Amino acid sequence: MLRDITKERSALVFIEFQQEWLADDGILQQRLIKDREPFRAAVENGARIIASARANGWTVVHAGLDLSADPGYLLFNGGHDVLGLRQAIPRAGTWQDKGAGRAAPFAPLDGEFVVAGRSGASVLKNSTLDPFLRNRRIDTLFLMGFATHVCVESSLREAHDMGYNAYLVEDACAAFERAQHEHVRKHVVHHFGAETDTAELTAFMEG
Rank of each mutant, 00 (worst) to 15 (best):
R3P: 02
D4S: 10
I5F: 11
K7D: 03
E8H: 05
A11Q: 06
L12K: 04
L22Q: 04
D24F: 02
D24E: 15
D24N: 13
G26K: 04
G26T: 01
G26R: 00
I27L: 08
L28H: 00
Q30I: 05
K34L: 11
D35K: 08
R36Y: 09
E37S: 12
P38N: 08
V43W: 04
V43A: 01
E44T: 11
R48I: 10
I50A: 02
S52I: 02
S52R: 12
A53L: 06
R54M: 07
A55T: 08
W58M: 10
V61G: 05
G64E: 04
D66W: 03
D70R: 02
P71W: 09
Y73D: 00
G84A: 09
R86E: 15
Q87F: 11
I89H: 03
R91P: 01
R91E: 15
A92Q: 13
T94C: 14
Q96C: 08
G99V: 00
G99E: 00
R102N: 05
P105F: 07
A107T: 15
L109C: 12
L109H: 13
E112R: 07
F113E: 12
G120M: 12
G120L: 10
S122R: 09
V123C: 11
L124K: 01
N126K: 11
N126L: 01
D130Q: 14
F132C: 08
F132K: 07
R134M: 11
N135H: 14
R136C: 11
R136D: 03
R137C: 11
R137D: 15
I138G: 02
F142M: 10
F142P: 06
F146D: 01
H149I: 02
C151M: 10
L156D: 02
R157C: 04
R157K: 13
A166S: 15
Y167L: 13
Y167T: 03
C173R: 00
C173Y: 00
A174R: 03
F176N: 11
F176C: 09
R178K: 14
Q180M: 12
H183E: 10
H183F: 13
V184H: 02
H191Y: 14
F192I: 07
G193R: 03
T196N: 10
T198K: 03
L201K: 03
F204M: 09
F204P: 02
M205V: 09
E206N: 11
G207Q: 13
